[in-house]
Simulated assay, not measured.
Amino acid sequence: MAIINCPFCNKKASDKSAVCGNCGGKLGEMSVEELDRLQRDKRLALGQSLNNHAMMSLIIFLGSFAWYYYREPETDSLEMYAIHGAMLVGCAWYLVTKVRLVLYKRK
């Protein structure tokens, strides 16, 4: 008997039980290969999601720079604060996502 991660809810469950105690997912009907495939597919989906987040944050970050240089807003205007906010959010989101990608690739 081994403890595995449920492929449906990602919580701990026994590989011998018929259903997951947390979500009710039917583990007994799945073979070990199917369980491994589901876990691998979830891991690949997480990697793709992290890559999408990195791309979106980079677009926000670079878009705010383009907005700043093409629009040339006045100092201390609402537009300037919005640009700086977008730069900050885009940069922070990108850095956090890149750290998450590094940790994802270590596993």
Rank of each mutant, 00 (worst) to 15 (best):
L95V: 13
R100S: 12
S64C: 07
G21C: 02
S17H: 07
P7C: 01
N52S: 14
S17A: 09
M1V: 02
A18S: 13
L103D: 09
K98M: 10
R43W: 06
L78T: 11
E34M: 10
M56F: 11
E74Q: 14
H84G: 02
M30G: 02
C9S: 04
S77K: 03
M56R: 11
S49V: 06
P73K: 04
F8Q: 15
W93L: 04
L103S: 11
Y104D: 03
Q39T: 06
A86F: 00
C91I: 04
V19E: 06
R71H: 03
L46G: 05
L101V: 06
L44F: 08
P7E: 02
F8M: 10
C20Q: 05
I3D: 13
D76A: 05
Y81A: 08
R43C: 05
H53S: 10
F8N: 15
L101D: 02
G85R: 05
E74S: 14
A2R: 15
F65I: 11
L35E: 05
L78D: 10
M1A: 08
W67R: 05
L44I: 13
Q39I: 02
V32E: 13
G90V: 00
S49H: 14
V99Q: 11
R40A: 15
V96L: 12
V32K: 14
K16S: 14
I60Y: 00
V19I: 12
